[in-house]
Design a protein around this nucleic acid. Structure first.
Lengths: 136, 136
DNA sequence: GAGTGAATCGTAATCATTACTATTAATTAA
DNA sequence: TTAATTAATAGTAATGATTACGATTCACTC
């Protein structure tokens, strides 16, 4: 998912092109891992010191709903990254030091015979944690 | 893991037998799914209205460290359950309505060729979410 | 360029969790 | 069995991320 594509998606859904949204996408496009919502906010403050929590959290949630960003929760913090392969279900290795991720294309739900009679499966979470080569 | 076994483990590590700890174990032994820390606290208040956050969180964390309880984080809340198969690595299906769990004995790490050269794997999380037969 | 609703600001509230000190209680050993 | 000692707890304040909301500003349409 590149930034151009994201703007197309936003336009399709009648979202406006604002400085804050530009800054969020610009920032996350440069990173290749998960970033906490608060850290995104810190970046926005460089250009816009008065940016409000409302703006940060609302836009990140909007982007996640539109599948522009991927979202996860780590250590009680919400984390976001640019969708690395939109539309294709996958998982991640996540570095616990720097947040960088590695794509894991396979999904445990395909490989594991999950024997759960009578239940209605709505979703799942699979993440691998550790240290990336740079942080070891 | 039954309550007797838990007390043995606690004794081995020189933890004292207190009313609060008895109540926590009694409560969680009766449940067959994850329960939020705050909900455990609510139960403690029945017998001990003045119980403090410190007591609730400290004991739950202690129990998790001793492998008496299993711990997870769901919707930004810490959740605990009696360890259903201590010492044997496994995962859970978790009902998003009532919190009840079903044991998943297999682990994706055994079945998936995770190709992550150079990384140091420290852990992983695999949970399946949905509705149990009673909550459908 | 004016009108309109979306987006934002500024700030307060919420909610789970953490922190800390004084007090109480469970165990140990005399 | 009691006294000593040390863990455990109560009570309460602080923290930190997130949510909420009225007032204002801004992006886009006509």
């Amino acid at each position: 998912m590149n930034v151009e594509k994201a703007w197309e998606t936003l336009k399709e859904h009648s979202f406006k092109r604002t400085k804050n949204r530009e800054a969020i996408l610009e920032f996350l496009a440069e990173r290749d891992g998960y970033t906490a919502a608060m850290d995104v906010g810190e970046f926005l403050k460089k250009d816009n010191p008065g940016v409000s929590f409302d703006t940060i959290y609302r836009n990140l949630a909007t982007f996640a709903e539109l599948d522009i960003l991927e979202e996860t929760e780590l250590n009680g913090e919400r984390q976001y990254r640019i969708h690395c392969d939109p539309g294709v279900h996958h998982h991640h290795f996540i570095c616990t030091v720097c947040g960088k991720t590695k794509h894991i294309p396979s999904c445990p739900m395909d490989h594991i015979a999950v024997n759960l009679p009578g239940v209605e499966i709505q979703g799942h979470k699979f993440e691998v944690y550790g240290k990336c080569p740079q942080c070891k």
